[in-house]
Write a protein that binds this DNA or RNA. Structure first.
Lengths: 206, 206
DNA sequence: TCGCAAATGTGACTTTAGTCATATTATATT
DNA sequence: AATATAATATGACTAAAGTCACATTTGCGA
């Protein structure tokens, strides 16, 4: 967990840490990254690190969340709902077309460095990847979906919006976890994701 | 991930490792446990460890899975279905009664040491706990649920049993993750678990 | 503005994880 | 049985994580 001591830091210092961490996580696979190096680069003493964070995964989460936040903000700015992204559209348009659109958008929104960072997340140890993705889902994606559910006429009014938004935010995490364990090809993940999403919707649609 | 090299080891050696790890994880909170100590205790050289496992979380998973396996086997032996355990029954009988029954069963099946181990799992870093629980769910619990779904007349025949069994196996993991993040009291977890289970069932019941 | 307490900063130090070159043992091939 | 080849075992070594006692700064009531 990222401690409140970190949040209280000056923007300048927070950014110095983020940038140093980002560079490290972009250029190395997760297991090869070093807290020591990041701290030297950012000019932060070792002791301080453990006042701000629990461990390396927090630092990684910080970097990944920054990219997710960018993605979300862009979609919002363009008036595109978040729920429509990823899985659901993939199913609606078919895998090929949906994936093309998805890639196109990512290319618009994300830099090459962002892609490298995401790539490293995909190859990080299973528990780190799951942690980081669930983190982003719950902290960034779920709140947006919750709002979308509230203003969606086809959704029941008596449900716990936050909880179902959280469940929906896992639409990428859960199938990927399952698919990875079963060693399924990437393409199948999306259909699993759709099934998962479908099962949540079955409970909350009027 | 636990490598196949470990599986190939003699039962004697595997058990020596399991017992040494178990003792370490029972007597220390996760962060205070040491691979080095476990290996010294088990008489296994450092280099061998990394031929069998990726890291400490594998060793922890090994210990936790052994207890889950015991629980599952006991329920099977007594002819009690797995799906009825935990959340669902909690909802059917009400929290108080359901929890009493749950505790009673656990007390029958598990030793004090098993409890200590589980306790340490509950307080392990978030990503370790999630990893270990999802692991057990997917490797041990899901296969049993899959069989139960297949022989359940009220379940549709055209579904992907394994996948929905996997989703149902997460009925304890998902609500606990959400509840922990939101800092909800333990009791609420069970109602969230029921909602989660409900939403999956809505999709697979005839 | 002084003095005190709480919060934050600091880096030498200890312990732990993880690597790798080499040794040993098992398995297959003729 | 002799030889080649692959699989496993080993522990000294390197690099990393994590700790802690002490220093410095900040906030705040008198």
């Amino acid at each position: 967990m990222i401690h409140s001591t970190f949040e209280r830091l000056s923007e300048e210092k927070k950014d110095r840490i983020l940038q140093a961490a980002r560079a490290e996580f972009i250029h190395n696979p997760y297991e090869k990254t070093s807290i020591n190096r990041i701290l030297t680069e950012a000019g932060i003493p070792k002791g301080s690190f453990y006042q701000y964070f629990d461990d390396k995964s927090d630092l990684f989460s910080l970097c990944i969340n920054a990219v997710y936040r960018k993605l979300i903000d862009e979609r919002k700015k363009n008036g595109e709902p978040l729920l429509e992204s990823g899985m659901l559209r993939m199913k609606r348009l078919g895998f090929e077309k949906g994936y093309q659109l998805f890639s196109k958008e990512l290319n618009e929104y994300l830099s090459e460095e962002d892609f490298a960072l995401f790539e490293n997340m995909l190859h990080a140890p299973h528990h780190i990847r799951t942690f980081v993705q669930m983190n982003a889902a719950s902290a960034l994606i779920a709140p947006v979906i919750s709002e979308e559910l509230k203003s969606d006429k086809s959704v029941r009014k008596d449900i716990d919006y936050d909880y179902y938004a959280y469940l929906l935010s896992l639409t990428e995490v859960i199938p990927v976890d399952y698919g990875t364990r079963k060693e399924l090809p990437m393409e199948e993940f999306y259909f699993l994701g759709y099934k998962y999403m479908r099962s949540i919707y079955d409970s909350i649609l009027r």
